[in-house]
Each structure stands twice: as structure tokens, then as C-alpha cells.
């Protein structure tokens, strides 16, 4: 981890710690495409929150995920959480690049966006009706500088499994949140199936150390 990044992570960590102390709720929005493992990602985060002793609520979209649609989920945690639905997100984490933009109006002022540098082209791009926003950082930087681009695909390749991108991103995200590492690990051990456990623990570790 480079020093600038370390500094930023510590800055946010203390912001979120203060929020928790003030009985505020921290909201994380997950965006991606069906099949990318958003359900597993939200489940890992939710259990980590539970083990840390927080109240936690999760939303997820059912039904359309298998049919290539956009998928959105969210995790809200704090001392006490009421609405499971997000009105403003402290953090947006996008498992696919352009999906980071779809819910950008939900981002809290000074909120963070974590973007997986990975593209899945939608049908509307193939048919020529829309252009894929490849230069995503140019668009995002016009209203927030608090974004982080993660090359989860590169790490996933070293692990020989593109499917681990979701857990790599969870590892990266874990640095920003006031949840102890041991609770993330216990959560992965609880949520991830036995036969891919070691792979995912490794993926989490590598994401965390980015």
C-alpha cells in the first residue's frame, strides 16, 4: 500500500469511526452486473458487521440477476439501523466500471467510490444506441475526487479465478471500515463454501494489501 493511499484510508476510517460514535448509520451501495457475486459480497460484509457487534441491514434485488441485468445491493450498519434501503451512500463500490455511475446521485457529499477496472458491455452498447463510458475517471472527477480504481482483474488472474473479483474488492473495502480484520475473516469462513474458502481468503488478503 503506498503512503498516499494509506493516509486516505486512515482519514476515512476515522470519519466513519466518528459517525458510529454519533449513532449514525454507514451505508454502502454495491453495484454490478448479474453473475458477479454481489449477493456474496453483501453477505460477507453483513456478517463482518454482525461479528463486530453492529446492527446491520441488507437489501438485494432478486429475479432479474440471471438475465444479465444491472444488480444493486446495499449494506447499512451502525448501533441501530432502521430502513434497510439507502437514501444516501457513504461508499459506492462498483464491481463493474460503468455501474459506478448509475447510482452516483446517491453518493453522500465527500463519499467514496471504489471502482473495479473491469468492463462488461451491455446490449445497449452492442446495438449502437449508447457509448460505453471507458474514460470513467474523467466523468467522476468532475464532482468527486474521492474515488479509487482497483484492478481486481489482475489479481484475480494471478489466483486463476476471475470469480474472486468480488472478494478482492471486499478486501480493499475492508481498509476503510471500522471493522476488525478478524471479523472479516470469520465472516468469509461463515459465508463462503468450504471448497473455495482458501482461494477466497487469499483473495481477501490480496485485496486488503493493495
Amino acid at each position: 500500500m503506498n503512503n498516499v493511499l494509506k493516509f486516505k484510508k486512515n482519514k476515512y476510517l476515522s470519519i466513519y469511526e466518528d459517525k458510529i460514535k454519533n449513532d449514525e448509520v454507514i451505508s454502502v451501495l454495491f453495484a454490478g452486473v448479474g453473475g458477479q457475486g454481489i449477493l456474496l459480497a453483501t453477505a460477507i460484509m453483513a456478517h463482518a458487521c454482525l461479528y463486530e457487534g453492529f446492527d446491520v441491514k441488507v437489501t438485494e434485488v432478486h429475479g432479474m440477476a440471471q438475465r444479465g441485468g444491472s444488480v444493486v445491493g446495499s449494506v447499512r450498519f451502525g448501533r441501530k439501523v432502521f430502513s434497510p434501503m439507502i437514501s444516501k451512500a457513504d461508499i459506492i463500490i462498483a464491481l463493474e466500471k460503468l455501474e459506478s455511475l448509475r447510482y452516483i446521485d446517491k453518493l453522500e457529499n465527500n463519499g467514496i467510490i471504489i471502482i473495479n477496472d473491469y468492463e462488461i458491455l451491455p446490449m445497449s452498447v452492442f446495438s449502437g444506441k449508447y457509448l460505453y463510458p471507458y474514460e470513467i475517471s474523467k466523468k467522476i472527477i468532475s464532482f468527486t475526487i474521492n474515488f479509487f480504481i482497483v484492478k481486481a482483474q489482475d489479481i484475480a488472474k494471478t489466483l486463476d479465478s476471475i470469480k474472486t473479483m468480488n472478494v478482492i474488492l471486499m478486501g480493499y473495502l475492508s481498509n476503510f471500515l471500522p471493522i476488525k480484520k478478524q471479523n472479516w475473516i470469520s465472516s468469509i469462513k461463515k459465508v463462503v463454501p468450504e471448497k473455495i474458502m482458501d482461494l477466497n481468503l487469499k483473495a481477501f488478503e490480496m485485496g486488503r494489501n493493495l
Binding site: S70, L101, F143
Partner: peptide, 27 residues
């Protein structure tokens, strides 16, 4: 109310309009 909080709302809406939709399709 968002406009009051966030001056960039028009710009954000413009960006959202340009995002390629990803509706469910037959597999």
C-alpha cells in the same frame, strides 16, 4: 433538496442520462 446539497446535480443527471441501460433480456 439535492440541488441545495449538491451543486453538481445537473451535471450528475446529465451523466446518468448517458449511462447505457442494462435491462434484463432473454438469455
Amino acid at each position: 433538496s439535492f440541488k441545495k446539497e449538491n451543486k453538481n446535480i445537473d451535471e450528475i443527471q446529465e451523466i446518468i442520462k448517458e449511462i447505457p441501460p442494462r435491462p434484463p433480456v432473454l438469455c
